[in-house]
């Protein structure tokens, strides 16, 4: 991989082709259940690949990432139900507030290392939940927010189009998010955060400011996560604190790790596989998180380097096999 700045021509072509294929997909996929699956893939893909920016590229052990999603979700829910703000503006507000929250968490973790970053960010997530639960007059507490208003497109009924509208909104978010993330990691900033991750002392001695880079990275990883959270609220029309729970956190985190960190596209691929798997066993009820948990542990035990590592290992094995057959 070259260390140049900017996105290469090959990659742009790939992105355009991918976007066009996904845009045409609803013509083939008419069934609203399959469209729902894809919408979930897009949402989780945005969240997981954004997480890869902070966790993978910058090496910031941010375990409050799902809280940023939740903040987007509740911002949207509260803004539309309580304040009666237009859903489209509330969607943007979800992204902005998540970014602000991320900037806020990045303050205490600037000087922290390793496990303490994990703890502070995790605690941040927990405290957001507690705040939501304790303010039950507004947030619905444990019951959650229900009957959240959804988007409104003049002359179009989002409820009656077999999820076509939601599909395209989610796809637009995914495309913007992916371009944004790739631009970010291929920019000077992206090089700087990787330099910081790999050798903090050297990087700081070359004049890279840790605090600024971390702040920008955290905020950058939050924007589309918050937007995805807000979209989630508009799509399901309710909000509950489940999104902060261990089950969803584990699922999303495993997308990042299984996808292989520092790839962005790896997270998207893992999101595709895991979301479809997880949605397919949705009928299992409480068994679902158990099955997913066991599966994640098994994959981690077998391939601690992630699916990415597994694929690389498989490729190596194939090559070795090929060589053995070539030379009898």
């Amino acid at each position: 991989m070259s260390m140049g700045v900017g996105i290469g021509r090959r990659e742009i072509t790939g992105m355009v082709v991918g976007a066009v294929v996904l845009a045409l997909l609803p013509m083939v996929v008419q069934d609203s259940y399959y469209r729902h699956l894809l919408i979930m893939v897009f949402i989780y893909g945005i969240v997981a690949s954004s997480w890869d920016l902070s966790l993978g590229y910058a090496g910031i052990f941010n375990f409050g990432h799902m809280a940023l999603f939740g903040i987007g979700l509740y911002t949207y829910g509260l803004a539309t139900t309580l304040l009666g703000i237009s859903p489209w503006i509330a969607l943007l507000a979800g992204g902005v507030l998540a970014a602000l929250a991320a900037a806020l968490i990045s303050l205490p973790i600037l000087r922290l290392k390793g496990i303490y970053v994990v703890l502070v960010t995790f605690a941040f997530g927990q405290l957001v939940v507690q705040l939501i639960i304790s303010q039950s007059d507004y947030t619905g507490g444990n019951q959650g927010l229900v009957r959240i208003p959804s988007f409104h497109i003049p002359g179009h009924n989002l409820m009656r189009d077999h999820k076509l509208g939601f599909y395209y909104i989610a796809l637009i978010l995914l495309c913007c998010s992916t371009v944004f993330l790739r631009l970010m990691v291929r920019s000077r900033l992206g090089l700087a955060i990787r330099a910081l991750r790999d050798n903090e002392e050297y990087a700081t001695s070359r004049g890279i400011s840790i605090s600024r880079q971390r702040l920008i990275t955290m905020a950058g990883s939050a924007v589309f996560t918050g937007l995805a959270g807000a979209f989630y609220g508009a799509y399901f029309r309710n909000a509950s604190t489940d999104v902060f729970g261990a089950s969803l956190t584990t699922l999303l985190l495993s997308m990042v790790l299984l996808g292989g960190i520092s790839t962005i596209y790896g997270s998207l691929l893992a999101a595709l596989l895991l979301t479809i798997f997880s949605e397919m066993i949705a009928g299992l009820g409480a068994w679902r998180p158990i099955v997913i948990g066991v599966l994640i542990i098994l994959v981690m035990l077998a391939y601690p380097g992630g699916l990415y590592g597994a694929i690389a290992a498989a490729a190596r094995a194939l090559r070795r096999l090929g060589r053995r057959q070539a030379s009898p």
């Binding site: 261990a246 495993s254 998180p289 158990i290 997913i292 948990g293 066991v294 542990i297």
Partner: peptide, 12 residues
């Protein structure tokens, strides 16, 4: 990640 997964398994 494995302890989080275990948390989810035990809780459910």
């Amino acid at each position: 990640i494995t302890t989080l997964a275990a948390a989810s398994i035990f809780e459910n």
